[in-house]
């Protein structure tokens, strides 16, 4: 369970990144955060594992305050939270397996990991994580030999190797093509359901948000302006979140990007919504 209590973030230059956020996210939810760029999506996500510090309020992860944690206490909370990034953030020159194993470092002493003495179970865990995203056969390849979609799956495996209760994904598909986007989102959804891992994803494609989320949170200028189910998130709601009409490039669909479309958003296919409702 993640709880936000009156969370605000003011940047040193006076800009308000987050404004009095109050949220409770329960175990096993698949939350998608939407909003314009600059609305505070990334700040909100990164405040959960404190890659960004907040200036007011308190964030609690399973009853423990990460806002007050420091040193090894902070690292212990962080190792329970996996994170996936837009640009994968893999060490490109290292092997896939070593990248996945690096997700385990928070579980062991610094000395032990630096000497490379990961227990055998860790290697097994890493291999299982790779198996789950279907790239076990790439374990000994160098990360830079993989395609973008494969690299993102490696970073999902790295997050899984942490055995987290929570996975944060910051624009995980923004640098992928539509086909691999679906694969990566399917992987995240499957992991969310199979392992009951709370998953919080920043997205800017509204059709993806509707299709995969169990709950959608809309942010505008650092404030929560919508919080509800995908069914409640109608086009009008999105227009309200964005403060303007919806553009074609905010829909993954099959439209050429760039042009304005006001309300012509295809309804998600029935087969897909079935899964989301569960």
């Amino acid at each position: 369970m993640i709880e936000f209590h009156n969370v605000s973030k003011v940047y040193p230059n006076g800009t308000r990144g987050l404004n009095n956020i109050n949220l409770t996210i329960h175990q096993g939810e698949m939350v998608v955060i939407v909003g314009l760029s600059g609305a505070g999506k990334s700040t909100l996500l990164r405040s959960i594992n404190r890659l960004h510090d907040i200036t007011e309020g308190d964030i609690q992860i399973n009853g423990q305050s990460i806002t007050e944690a420091s040193g090894s206490g902070l690292r212990r909370i962080r190792r329970g939270i996996g994170m996936i990034f837009q640009s994968f953030n893999l060490v490109k020159r290292s092997t896939v397996l070593r990248n996945v194993l690096s997700g385990r470092v928070g579980h062991h002493s610094t000395l032990r990991t630096v000497l490379g003495m990961f227990p055998a179970e860790d290697t097994e865990l890493a291999m299982d994580a790779l198996e789950r995203v279907n790239i076990r056969d790439k374990a000994y390849s160098r990360a830079d030999q993989l395609s973008g979609g494969q690299q993102q799956r490696v970073s999902i495996a790295r997050a899984l190797a942490q055995q987290p209760q929570i996975i944060l994904a910051d624009e995980p598909v923004a640098s992928l093509d539509p086909l691999t986007t679906r694969q990566v989102m399917d992987d995240l959804q499957r992991i969310n359901r199979d392992l009951n891992i709370t998953t919080i994803i920043n997205l800017h494609f509204i059709d993806l948000a509707r299709q995969y989320a169990t709950r959608i949170i809309g942010l505008r200028a650092g404030e929560v302006v919508f919080d509800g189910t995908p069914e409640e998130a109608t086009d009008e709601v999105f227009s309200h979140i964005y403060g303007r009409s919806i553009h074609r490039d905010e829909v993954l669909g099959d439209h050429p990007p760039g042009e304005d479309i006001v309300t012509v958003i295809p309804d998600p296919a029935p087969a897909r919504t079935d899964g989301v409702k569960s």
Binding site: M127, E131, R136, D137, A139, Y140
Partner: peptide, 10 residues
């Protein structure tokens, strides 16, 4: 099957 054959390179 395939996954089981993955061995660490020498």
């Amino acid at each position: 099957m395939k996954a089981a054959t993955i061995e660490a390179p020498q």
